[in-house]
Amino acid sequence: MNKTVNQKAWFFVIPVFVLVAFNAIIPLMTVVNYAFQETFGNNVFMWEGTRWFKQIMLSERFHASLGRQFLFTFIILFIQIPLGIAIALTMPKEGIGVPVCLVLMSMPLLIPWNVVGAMWNIFALPDIGFLGHSLNALGFDYNFTQQIGDAWFTTILMDVWHWTSLVVLLSYAGLRSIQPAYYQAAEIDGASRWAIFTKIELPKMKKVLTIAILLRFMDSFMIYTEPFVLTGGGPGNATAFLSIDLVKMALGQFDLGPAAAMSLIYFFIVLLVCWVFYTLMMRNEEKS
Protein backbone atom coordinates (compact mmCIF):
# COMPACT_ATOMS: atom_id res chain seq x y z
CA MET A 1 0.00 0.00 0.00
CA ASN A 2 1.19 3.49 -0.80
CA LYS A 3 1.32 5.85 2.10
CA THR A 4 -1.22 8.60 1.64
CA VAL A 5 0.42 11.99 1.85
CA ASN A 6 -1.82 14.34 3.71
CA GLN A 7 -0.93 18.00 4.02
CA LYS A 8 -4.17 19.09 5.64
CA ALA A 9 -2.54 19.25 9.04
CA TRP A 10 -0.61 22.37 8.04
CA PHE A 11 -3.84 24.38 7.95
CA PHE A 12 -4.35 23.64 11.60
CA VAL A 13 -0.82 24.56 12.51
CA ILE A 14 -0.74 27.90 10.67
CA PRO A 15 -2.85 29.87 13.18
CA VAL A 16 -0.51 28.83 15.97
CA PHE A 17 2.50 29.90 13.94
CA VAL A 18 0.95 33.27 13.26
CA LEU A 19 0.00 33.76 16.90
CA VAL A 20 3.40 32.76 18.21
CA ALA A 21 5.06 35.01 15.66
CA PHE A 22 3.02 38.05 16.72
CA ASN A 23 3.21 37.18 20.38
CA ALA A 24 6.76 36.21 20.87
CA ILE A 25 9.08 36.18 17.92
CA ILE A 26 8.36 39.61 16.36
CA PRO A 27 8.42 41.54 19.67
CA LEU A 28 11.53 39.70 20.77
CA MET A 29 13.31 40.43 17.49
CA THR A 30 12.28 44.10 17.77
CA VAL A 31 13.91 44.21 21.17
CA VAL A 32 17.02 42.53 19.83
CA ASN A 33 17.00 45.03 16.98
CA TYR A 34 16.86 48.00 19.36
CA ALA A 35 19.47 46.54 21.68
CA PHE A 36 22.26 46.84 19.15
CA GLN A 37 21.34 50.19 17.60
CA GLU A 38 20.66 53.83 18.37
CA THR A 39 17.53 55.46 17.08
CA PHE A 40 16.24 59.00 17.03
CA GLY A 41 12.88 58.09 15.64
CA ASN A 42 11.81 58.31 12.01
CA ASN A 43 13.17 54.82 11.49
CA VAL A 44 16.75 56.06 11.48
CA PHE A 45 19.05 53.50 13.08
CA MET A 46 22.76 53.52 13.83
CA TRP A 47 24.74 50.37 14.69
CA GLU A 48 26.04 50.50 18.25
CA GLY A 49 27.28 46.94 18.72
CA THR A 50 27.48 45.93 22.37
CA ARG A 51 27.66 49.47 23.69
CA TRP A 52 24.27 49.40 25.40
CA PHE A 53 25.03 46.09 27.03
CA LYS A 54 28.30 47.40 28.43
CA GLN A 55 26.59 50.55 29.61
CA ILE A 56 23.84 48.62 31.38
CA MET A 57 26.19 46.08 32.92
CA LEU A 58 28.30 48.84 34.35
CA SER A 59 25.46 51.10 35.40
CA GLU A 60 24.95 51.54 39.09
CA ARG A 61 21.28 52.10 38.55
CA PHE A 62 20.95 48.62 37.05
CA HIS A 63 22.98 47.07 39.84
CA ALA A 64 20.77 48.74 42.40
CA SER A 65 17.48 47.63 40.84
CA LEU A 66 18.82 44.13 40.25
CA GLY A 67 19.88 43.96 43.88
CA ARG A 68 16.46 45.15 45.03
CA GLN A 69 14.86 42.62 42.73
CA PHE A 70 16.83 39.68 44.11
CA LEU A 71 16.26 40.81 47.66
CA PHE A 72 12.52 41.11 47.08
CA THR A 73 12.23 37.74 45.32
CA PHE A 74 14.31 36.04 47.98
CA ILE A 75 12.24 37.48 50.81
CA ILE A 76 8.88 36.58 49.33
CA LEU A 77 10.05 33.02 48.47
CA PHE A 78 11.39 32.68 51.99
CA ILE A 79 8.02 33.64 53.41
CA GLN A 80 5.59 32.20 50.88
CA ILE A 81 6.99 28.69 50.46
CA PRO A 82 7.11 27.71 54.15
CA LEU A 83 3.91 29.60 54.88
CA GLY A 84 2.15 27.94 51.93
CA ILE A 85 3.25 24.46 53.05
CA ALA A 86 2.22 25.22 56.63
CA ILE A 87 -1.25 26.33 55.56
CA ALA A 88 -1.63 23.31 53.26
CA LEU A 89 -0.74 21.02 56.18
CA THR A 90 -3.43 22.52 58.39
CA MET A 91 -6.15 22.45 55.77
CA PRO A 92 -8.92 19.88 56.32
CA LYS A 93 -8.58 16.63 54.39
CA GLU A 94 -12.25 15.79 54.07
CA GLY A 95 -15.73 17.15 54.62
CA ILE A 96 -17.29 20.49 53.82
CA GLY A 97 -14.13 22.30 54.93
CA VAL A 98 -12.27 21.21 51.80
CA PRO A 99 -14.27 23.15 49.18
CA VAL A 100 -14.65 26.11 51.54
CA CYS A 101 -10.90 26.34 52.08
CA LEU A 102 -10.13 25.85 48.42
CA VAL A 103 -12.50 28.64 47.37
CA LEU A 104 -11.18 31.00 50.04
CA MET A 105 -7.64 30.20 48.97
CA SER A 106 -8.28 30.87 45.30
CA MET A 107 -9.90 34.28 45.93
CA PRO A 108 -6.74 36.43 45.96
CA LEU A 109 -5.54 34.65 42.81
CA LEU A 110 -8.64 35.72 40.91
CA ILE A 111 -8.23 39.46 41.53
CA PRO A 112 -6.65 41.43 38.66
CA TRP A 113 -3.15 42.60 39.48
CA ASN A 114 -3.74 46.32 39.18
CA VAL A 115 -6.80 45.95 41.42
CA VAL A 116 -4.60 44.25 44.01
CA GLY A 117 -2.22 47.21 43.86
CA ALA A 118 -5.06 49.71 44.12
CA MET A 119 -6.71 47.80 46.98
CA TRP A 120 -3.53 47.72 49.01
CA ASN A 121 -2.77 51.32 48.21
CA ILE A 122 -6.07 52.40 49.74
CA PHE A 123 -5.85 49.77 52.50
CA ALA A 124 -2.43 51.02 53.57
CA LEU A 125 -2.95 54.77 53.32
CA PRO A 126 -1.74 56.16 56.65
CA ASP A 127 -4.63 58.56 57.13
CA ILE A 128 -7.71 56.77 55.79
CA GLY A 129 -6.61 53.19 55.01
CA PHE A 130 -7.57 50.52 57.54
CA LEU A 131 -4.08 49.07 57.79
CA GLY A 132 -2.24 52.39 57.78
CA HIS A 133 -4.62 54.00 60.20
CA SER A 134 -4.61 51.03 62.59
CA LEU A 135 -0.83 50.83 62.65
CA ASN A 136 -0.57 54.52 63.41
CA ALA A 137 -3.26 54.24 66.04
CA LEU A 138 -1.23 51.46 67.67
CA GLY A 139 1.68 53.83 67.92
CA PHE A 140 3.76 52.77 64.91
CA ASP A 141 5.06 55.58 62.76
CA TYR A 142 3.81 54.04 59.52
CA ASN A 143 3.80 55.78 56.14
CA PHE A 144 4.56 53.66 53.10
CA THR A 145 4.73 56.62 50.72
CA GLN A 146 7.45 58.29 52.76
CA GLN A 147 9.49 55.63 54.51
CA ILE A 148 11.55 53.01 52.68
CA GLY A 149 11.07 50.29 55.29
CA ASP A 150 7.33 50.77 55.33
CA ALA A 151 7.18 50.71 51.54
CA TRP A 152 9.02 47.38 51.44
CA PHE A 153 6.94 45.99 54.29
CA THR A 154 3.73 46.85 52.46
CA THR A 155 4.88 45.54 49.09
CA ILE A 156 5.99 42.24 50.59
CA LEU A 157 2.82 41.91 52.64
CA MET A 158 0.76 42.53 49.51
CA ASP A 159 2.67 39.94 47.52
CA VAL A 160 2.41 37.39 50.32
CA TRP A 161 -1.33 38.01 50.53
CA HIS A 162 -1.74 37.75 46.79
CA TRP A 163 0.39 34.72 45.99
CA THR A 164 0.78 32.42 49.02
CA SER A 165 -2.46 30.74 47.96
CA LEU A 166 -0.79 29.42 44.84
CA VAL A 167 1.83 27.65 46.94
CA VAL A 168 -0.92 26.40 49.26
CA LEU A 169 -2.96 24.93 46.41
CA LEU A 170 0.03 23.21 44.85
CA SER A 171 1.26 21.84 48.18
CA TYR A 172 -2.22 20.69 49.07
CA ALA A 173 -2.48 18.77 45.80
CA GLY A 174 0.92 17.21 46.53
CA LEU A 175 -0.11 16.22 50.03
CA ARG A 176 -3.37 14.68 48.93
CA SER A 177 -1.58 12.38 46.50
CA ILE A 178 0.29 10.63 49.33
CA GLN A 179 -1.21 7.21 50.01
CA PRO A 180 -2.62 6.69 53.52
CA ALA A 181 -0.42 3.61 53.92
CA TYR A 182 2.59 5.92 54.26
CA TYR A 183 1.09 7.68 57.25
CA GLN A 184 0.00 4.39 58.78
CA ALA A 185 3.43 2.85 58.35
CA ALA A 186 5.10 5.91 59.86
CA GLU A 187 2.72 5.82 62.78
CA ILE A 188 3.56 2.17 63.36
CA ASP A 189 7.28 2.91 63.03
CA GLY A 190 6.80 5.42 65.84
CA ALA A 191 7.76 8.43 63.73
CA SER A 192 7.24 11.88 65.23
CA ARG A 193 5.11 14.48 63.43
CA TRP A 194 8.31 16.26 62.38
CA ALA A 195 9.78 13.01 61.00
CA ILE A 196 6.60 12.36 59.03
CA PHE A 197 6.92 15.84 57.57
CA THR A 198 10.59 15.61 56.64
CA LYS A 199 10.74 11.94 55.64
CA ILE A 200 7.43 11.48 53.86
CA GLU A 201 5.57 14.68 53.12
CA LEU A 202 8.43 16.87 51.95
CA PRO A 203 10.02 14.23 49.64
CA LYS A 204 6.61 13.41 48.17
CA MET A 205 5.87 17.11 47.62
CA LYS A 206 9.21 17.74 45.96
CA LYS A 207 7.93 17.89 42.42
CA VAL A 208 5.05 20.28 43.07
CA LEU A 209 7.27 22.40 45.28
CA THR A 210 9.81 22.69 42.47
CA ILE A 211 7.04 23.96 40.24
CA ALA A 212 5.76 26.32 42.96
CA ILE A 213 9.21 27.79 43.51
CA LEU A 214 9.81 28.22 39.77
CA LEU A 215 6.46 29.90 39.22
CA ARG A 216 6.87 32.18 42.20
CA PHE A 217 10.43 33.01 41.23
CA MET A 218 9.51 33.99 37.69
CA ASP A 219 6.40 35.92 38.65
CA SER A 220 8.01 37.83 41.48
CA PHE A 221 11.14 38.51 39.47
CA MET A 222 9.03 40.12 36.80
CA ILE A 223 6.65 41.86 39.20
CA TYR A 224 5.43 45.18 37.83
CA THR A 225 1.75 46.07 38.10
CA GLU A 226 1.16 45.75 41.83
CA PRO A 227 4.14 47.75 43.15
CA PHE A 228 3.65 50.25 40.33
CA VAL A 229 0.11 50.92 41.45
CA LEU A 230 0.99 50.74 45.15
CA THR A 231 4.20 52.72 45.44
CA GLY A 232 5.09 53.70 41.89
CA GLY A 233 8.59 52.51 42.68
CA GLY A 234 9.03 54.99 45.50
CA PRO A 235 9.80 56.51 47.83
CA GLY A 236 12.62 57.60 45.54
CA ASN A 237 13.73 54.43 43.83
CA ALA A 238 13.35 52.28 46.93
CA THR A 239 10.84 49.86 45.42
CA ALA A 240 11.80 50.34 41.78
CA PHE A 241 12.26 46.70 40.87
CA LEU A 242 13.79 45.70 37.55
CA SER A 243 10.68 45.92 35.44
CA ILE A 244 9.60 49.23 36.93
CA ASP A 245 13.06 50.62 36.28
CA LEU A 246 12.96 49.21 32.78
CA VAL A 247 9.68 50.86 31.92
CA LYS A 248 10.91 54.16 33.38
CA MET A 249 13.94 53.96 31.14
CA ALA A 250 12.09 52.89 28.01
CA LEU A 251 8.96 54.99 28.17
CA GLY A 252 9.87 57.70 30.69
CA GLN A 253 13.23 58.63 29.23
CA PHE A 254 12.80 57.03 25.82
CA ASP A 255 16.26 55.41 26.07
CA LEU A 256 15.14 52.58 23.83
CA GLY A 257 18.59 51.13 23.15
CA PRO A 258 19.72 50.67 26.76
CA ALA A 259 16.20 49.59 27.75
CA ALA A 260 16.22 46.92 25.06
CA ALA A 261 19.66 45.72 26.16
CA MET A 262 18.43 45.63 29.74
CA SER A 263 15.36 43.62 28.70
CA LEU A 264 17.59 41.01 27.11
CA ILE A 265 19.88 40.81 30.11
CA TYR A 266 16.81 40.57 32.34
CA PHE A 267 15.42 37.79 30.15
CA PHE A 268 18.65 35.83 30.33
CA ILE A 269 18.89 36.15 34.09
CA VAL A 270 15.39 34.65 34.51
CA LEU A 271 16.22 31.90 32.05
CA LEU A 272 19.54 31.12 33.71
CA VAL A 273 18.21 31.01 37.26
CA CYS A 274 15.29 28.81 36.25
CA TRP A 275 17.55 26.48 34.32
CA VAL A 276 20.09 26.14 37.14
CA PHE A 277 17.37 25.57 39.71
CA TYR A 278 15.51 23.05 37.59
CA THR A 279 18.62 21.06 36.70
CA LEU A 280 19.68 20.92 40.32
CA MET A 281 16.30 19.62 41.42
CA MET A 282 16.04 17.11 38.61
CA ARG A 283 19.57 15.85 39.01
CA ASN A 284 18.71 14.80 42.54
CA GLU A 285 15.63 13.15 41.15
CA GLU A 286 17.68 11.00 38.77
CA LYS A 287 20.08 9.95 41.46
CA SER A 288 17.33 8.45 43.54
Binding site: Q179, A185, S288
Partner: peptide
Protein backbone atom coordinates in the same frame (compact mmCIF):
# COMPACT_ATOMS: atom_id res chain seq x y z
CA UNK B 1 2.43 -3.78 59.49
CA UNK B 2 3.41 -4.45 55.88
CA UNK B 3 1.12 -2.93 53.28
CA UNK B 4 0.00 -3.90 49.80
CA UNK B 5 2.32 -1.37 48.18
CA UNK B 6 5.83 -1.12 49.55
CA UNK B 7 6.13 1.84 51.89
CA UNK B 8 9.67 3.13 52.02
CA UNK B 9 11.22 6.43 52.95
CA UNK B 10 12.45 7.58 49.53
CA UNK B 11 15.18 9.92 50.66
Amino acid sequence: QIFQFPVIYDT
